[in-house]
Amino acid sequence: MGSFLFNFFALLTVICAVGTVVNKNAVNAAMCFLLALVGVSGLFVLLDAYLLAFVLLLVYAGAVVALFLFIVMLLDAQGGPRRPFKPVTIAASTISLALLAMGVLTIYERSHLTAAPATPAGPTLKEYAYQLFSTYLLPVQIVGFLLLIAMLGVIVLAKKHEGLEDIK
């Protein structure tokens, strides 16, 4: 059963990821992204990280993708005509592909890892919270500060500025 679920979610994720990247229409791409996130969330559940799975759905799928959709629909921009790919791009793509292949081979050659999970269930919510508030307290504070700055930045950026020249 675990194996089946894993395969299902993994396949879902990969297909939807490809869909995100390939789709011409930005809205379609966003919806595919959403489904990819659902797949990843399922994988998290299979890895016993229940809290993270839900947080992913809530924050990422719920807030971030929603935001993406808002902006996509706000900036109802049409893409221009398709242009042929530049040689640089083709070269870069090949290199990435090669790296990926190398990576896969490396992992399979060099891994000495066991088949089954070593320990039973993952961390509980209590352990998780405890870690957040003791070992990782400083990062929590810094991230809070970061969110504050991001909020301020967004407010400033999104303002309409009157009288500025077009820089084109």
Binding site: L52, V55, Y60, L67, L75, G153, L157
Partner: peptide, 26 residues
């Protein structure tokens, strides 16, 4: 559980980044 906690932070940073990035795009 260190990995899990780290993911927590990645999520937060990603959210903030998306917000600011989209504001820039707008």
């Amino acid at each position: 559980s260190d990995g899990n906690v780290f993911v927590f932070f990645i999520l937060t940073v990603a959210a903030a980044e998306v917000a600011v990035g989209l504001a820039i795009i707008v």
